[in-house]
Design a protein around this nucleic acid. Structure first.
Lengths: 226, 226
DNA sequence: TGGCAAGCGGACGAGATCGTCCATTTGACC
DNA sequence: GGTCAAATGGACGATCTCGTCCGCTTGCCA
């Protein structure tokens, strides 16, 4: 043994192993961007210049690889939410949040698929992060509504509607930045208080946390509550 | 030989063949709805109670099957456009069109995937239909803008943006009618003339017809023109 | 420098899907 | 009813992907 005591952390790896780990993640991002997150594991391994065994040893499932590959982007999302809360201008905070996340989806090929695929998992720790994020987001929404800049009938679940539809758009049209920006602009305008003209249909029952259920429970088709 | 002269049309089939054809299409809709349009061909065949050979003889490629299975829905889209043009109220025509197509995407499981997948093909005849549709749609847009109900900076390509993003949403959340309706409501509100507050980013270069190119040319990432 | 456990990579068997081939059945016309 | 081409269905070979197993290599500590 040696430096670390017992349980192998992620950096108690031998030098070469750590290097390979980084190579794999880098290769995964490239391959996922080119061929989608369903690309063969062997392709990722070849691109990284390692054997499949190495890949599987580091990331036992495709899901683990995907999550690790886009962890940085996920972190950026979370950080942006914190920054949005810190912004003195409630609307600007809200707008920045939506624009930043959508820009991430637009620019990081493969991330949109990962973004959608990431929800259904609900890792213990991941769930806690999401819960916190939901809390923060609701605070952001309430603040913006109190300031009269976000329409009063905006429902927190609408952010999921916006992000998932944008996700679908950039997946269908990878590379078309104009289309993505256009959608974001339309949505943001319709979220502003002064855009509220008619009544909206009932909001979706989904929340950031319940997304996994909604995204998977495909048979029973519950519509909305309330 | 017999009744028909030479080239076998689609209804010069023998009675049993025609019956099987119908069975296959019906089974395909069910299977595609349950498992997506990537479901194994054998599954469709089994469900239809025919052998795979029969399936392949009728529909040589999965694409041909998908297109045939959802031809009816595509026709409905086209018909709705015609009806929209005939509507004396320009806004109601426009609104009905968007709502109807989105409702189709929402209710017909598997159709969204087919909708996106259908574009990249450009069958000779299909291309002509699309061209006509685009003409009609532009007329609809101009009429609504002239009447001052549709915002002046609405660009025809925005309909593709709207439909594709909605497509993505219902694909991610099959069965969540509320989310779908919510998105449609938001988008329609932001398309109305009185919703135009700030300037929009440049529209996408894609049109209904150019969608195939945009959806496939994934590497070179042209953004917008003007 | 030597020893050894961590790390490595490629071969390999299992499982799934594709699309074709061909012997047999069946509908339509005489 | 008889004839024959159209139609059928399932077996089959090819291809692909997965994830594991195992013999060899290499970094690290003494």
């Amino acid at each position: 043994m040696g430096k670390s005591s017992r349980i192998a952390g992620q950096d108690s790896l031998r030098a070469d192993a750590r290097r390979n780990r980084r190579r794999i993640l880098s290769a995964a991002r490239v391959v996922f961007a080119e061929h989608g997150i369903d690309a063969p594991m062997a392709t990722v391994a070849r691109r990284a210049g390692v054997g499949v065994a190495t890949l599987y040893r580091r990331f036992p499932t495709r899901d683990a690889l995907v999550r690790a590959a886009f962890a940085h982007q996920m972190d950026t999302c979370a950080r942006t939410l914190t920054e949005a809360l810190a912004d003195p201008d409630p609307w600007q905070g809200f707008q920045r949040l939506v624009e930043t996340v959508c820009e991430l989806q637009r620019e990081e090929r493969g991330f949109p698929a990962a973004f959608v695929a990431a929800f259904p998992d609900s890792t213990r720790e991941h769930a806690r992060v999401l819960e916190q994020a939901e809390q923060d987001f609701m605070t952001l929404v309430r603040r913006a509504q109190a300031a009269g800049v976000l329409r009063a009938d905006f429902h927190p679940s609408d952010i999921a509607v916006a992000l998932l539809s944008h996700c679908g758009l950039v997946t269908a049209l990878p590379g078309d930045r104009a289309a993505s920006r256009r959608l974001v602009a339309y949505l943001l305008q319709s979220f502003r208080a002064e855009a509220a003209h008619g009544a909206l249909p009932a909001p979706s029952a989904l929340s950031l946390r319940s997304l996994p259920l909604a995204a998977h429970g495909s048979q029973g088709q519950r519509s909305s509550g309330t």
